[in-house]
Amino acid sequence: MVDIVFGFDFGVKRIGIAMGNTLTGQAQPLTVIKAIDNATRFRIIGELIEQWRPARLVVGEPRHPDGAEHEMTLRSRRFANQLHGRFNLPVELVDERYSSAVIPQKRGEIIDAKAAAIILQQYLDDHANIN
């Protein structure tokens, strides 16, 4: 069975979303949500979940290079908990601190979706036999 998996690069201004599947093990950018209010963000995410029917969700967990947590670590964790609570899907956190090395520092819509794809690809690579 092939499972669709969504990856999220959570940000205060934007949320990058990627999708991949367990058959090919490949992630690709999907979209970016620019809405600031949670109701709109979660409505859009709900529509994407309805359309693609992912089996699980993966959220990047940012940390300082030494592994220490910071404000965005806690915000990303809270976002992951909200995803699980609203959509009743398994949610996994992925350490994203090394993924930033391959992402240009200038943020933007395309970059956010690519960052989500890198986070999801890391998860798929680490869980190659999840089927």
Rank of each mutant, 00 (worst) to 15 (best):
V59Q: 09
R56A: 12
G25S: 12
I36Q: 14
E47L: 09
D95C: 13
L30M: 08
R41Y: 01
A35N: 12
R53I: 00
V12H: 06
R14M: 08
D66R: 14
N88P: 03
E50D: 14
A101K: 15
G46F: 02
G11E: 02
G108V: 04
R53V: 01
F42D: 01
F87Y: 07
E96N: 08
N81P: 02
V102D: 15
R107D: 08
L120W: 00
I111V: 14
V102I: 14
A113L: 00
D95H: 14
R75Y: 03
L83I: 05
F8R: 07
M19N: 08
M72F: 06
Q105D: 04
H64G: 03
L57P: 02
L124S: 04
R43H: 06
V91H: 08
E47K: 12
P54L: 11
G20S: 11
N131M: 09
R56S: 12
V94D: 05
A80I: 05
H84A: 15
V5N: 01
S76T: 07
Q121F: 00
G20R: 04
N88F: 06
A113P: 00
G46H: 04
P65Q: 13
E50H: 13
G85V: 00
I119K: 04
G46T: 04
A128R: 14
A18Q: 03
G85C: 01
H84F: 05
H64K: 15
Q28I: 07
I15N: 07
M1G: 14
Y123L: 10
I44L: 12
E96V: 09
E92D: 12
T24S: 15
I110A: 15
G7C: 05
R43V: 03
Q105I: 00
I45H: 03
P90D: 07
D66N: 15
L30G: 06
P54E: 05
A35V: 02
L30S: 07
Q82L: 15
I33W: 04
I130M: 13
R75T: 06
E47I: 06
I103F: 00
R97L: 04
I45Q: 06
Q122P: 01
Q82V: 15
P62L: 07
A116Y: 01
P29L: 10
V91A: 10
D126I: 07
L57F: 02
